[in-house]
Structures are given as structure tokens and as C-alpha cells.
Simulated scan of single mutants.
Amino acid sequence: MPPIDPSATLPPDTPLSKIPNFDPRQAPVVGVDAHLPAVGADALAPAALRRRFAEPPHWEPEIWAERRFTDRQPAKAAVLVPIVMRERPMVLLTERTAHLSTHSGQVAFPGGKQDDTDVDAADTALREAHEEIGLERPLAEVIGTLPTYTTGTMFIITPVIALVRPDYRLALNAFEVADAFEVPLDFLMNPAHHHRHAIELSGVRREWFSMPYGEDGKERFIWGATAAMLRNFYRFLSA
């Protein structure tokens, strides 16, 4: 992966929510799940991940949906969860640009709304990943999907898991993507890094996970839908 121009990344004070006077980075942490076991390194190897999806365990997602806060009609969408097949497997994530109407400035998987011409969720996820970050389809091996997750903005998202060759090259869509980076899969599959948050907003209690990750002196604040889908992925692998 070529280096990203630092001038293209978002400043640290970029708002991560459209809700007035709300910054998820400042919300209190009400718990950390260090008591739960981490997924072992052997289970995170490409061959083990392929076997897991080929013969899935009996399990249930921990989080299905967020509280609705829009009148928008539900829309099907898909995201690609790209696991880069390095010696230490990594998850490729993006940072969305600040001007987007939904989830601006947030860490996210590449993905988006399903088009009428898309064959299935995997087709949507691969198409969007190519449009957003230039990831070529032949470099991504789809090995399975997770159950849908519905955001508060009423996107019904199917997470599509893919193994990505480490020799990939990216071309970021500057309108949608401010940055792209990798996070170790074992970091994300360790509940000691899963922070629980809760806060009252306009009389409604909202709860979510975050997985803050430090890299090169910069914190990547993974939270909301992205963290929820990663939490479900943890539940799938640890079942």
C-alpha cells in the first residue's frame, strides 16, 4: 500500500457525529470487556477463516440494529471487511471525508448502497470498494457474510468478509475517502479493546462500542456501526 499524503487526512478535531454538542470520543466509557477471551492467532489465519465460514457455528449477533433517528426509508447496503493476508492479518479501514451527509469523518469499511444492477451483497461490497479505494476485485477473495446490521440512518448493511492479497494498491476517491489504513485483526478480535459507551441524548439512552487504535501518534476512533459489526465478527469467531 502506498503512503497516504498526511495533508489529505482529517484534523483530530473533525466532528464524528452530526448530532449537535455530541462527540463520541468524549462520551464516558461504562465498561471494557477484558474478561472475555480474545480470538487466538490460529483462528485468524486465512485457512482457519475459510473453514469457519464453510462450517459456521451456531451463534447469534450481539447487536442487530441502532435506534432509528431518521425518516429515510430503509435501504439495502453492503460493506467489505477486507482482511489483508499479511503474516499478522490486518483489517483495511477507511476514514470518510468530513463533508458527507451521513457518517462523515468516521472510520468505516468500504461499502455503500446496493444498486439495482448488483447481483448480491458481495457484488455491492466489491463494486463500492473499487469505487471508493480502488481495490481490484481479483485481489479480494470473498469467504462469507455476516448477518445484517441496521444503522440509525436506516441502512440495512450486509458485512462481506474477504481475504485481500497484501500486494494491493489503492486509489482513494477523494470525495468520499480522506484516508485508508490497516489495523491488526488480533487487536480488533480482543475484547480488552472493546469499550462500551452510554449516554442520554434528548431523553433517549444510546449505547455503542468503540475500539480506539493508536498508530504513528494518531488515534483512529473506531466506533458506531463499524465497531458493532466488528463486535459481531468477534462473536462469530469466538462461538
Rank of each mutant, 00 (worst) to 15 (best):
P3G: 02
D5V: 06
L10W: 12
D13A: 06
D13R: 00
T14R: 02
L16V: 03
I19C: 00
F22E: 10
Q26C: 05
P28Q: 04
D33K: 03
D33Q: 14
L36E: 13
P37C: 11
A38R: 15
V39R: 04
D42L: 09
A43S: 13
A43E: 11
P46T: 06
A47P: 01
R51D: 13
R51I: 00
F53T: 02
P56I: 01
W59Y: 13
E60D: 09
R68D: 06
F69K: 09
T70G: 08
T70Q: 10
D71M: 10
P74F: 03
A77L: 06
A77G: 13
A78I: 08
V79E: 10
L80C: 09
L80K: 03
L80Q: 06
V81D: 01
M85E: 14
R88I: 07
R88V: 12
P89F: 07
P89L: 07
V91C: 04
V91K: 03
L93G: 09
E95F: 05
T97E: 08
A98F: 08
S101H: 13
T102G: 02
S104H: 15
G105R: 05
A108E: 13
A108W: 11
F109W: 02
F109A: 03
P110N: 11
P110G: 10
G112R: 10
D115E: 12
D115Y: 13
D116V: 09
A121K: 09
T124F: 12
A125S: 01
L126E: 03
L126K: 11
E128Y: 06
E131I: 09
L135V: 05
L135T: 03
R137D: 05
R137P: 02
P138T: 11
E141M: 10
E141R: 10
V142S: 03
T151A: 11
F155M: 12
P159Y: 09
V160N: 04
V160C: 10
I161K: 08
I161C: 08
A162W: 03
A162K: 07
L163E: 10
R165D: 13
R165H: 15
D167L: 05
D167T: 08
Y168A: 13
A174W: 07
A178G: 13
D179Q: 07
D179K: 00
A180G: 04
V183F: 12
V183I: 15
P184Y: 13
D186P: 10
H193F: 14
H193G: 05
R196W: 08
H197T: 08
H197D: 09
A198I: 04
I199D: 11
R206C: 04
R206S: 05
E207F: 01
F209N: 10
S210G: 10
Y213F: 15
E215F: 02
D216S: 12
R220E: 02
R220N: 08
F221M: 04
G224P: 05
G224R: 05
T226F: 06
T226H: 05
L230A: 07
R235I: 01
S238Y: 00
S238R: 12
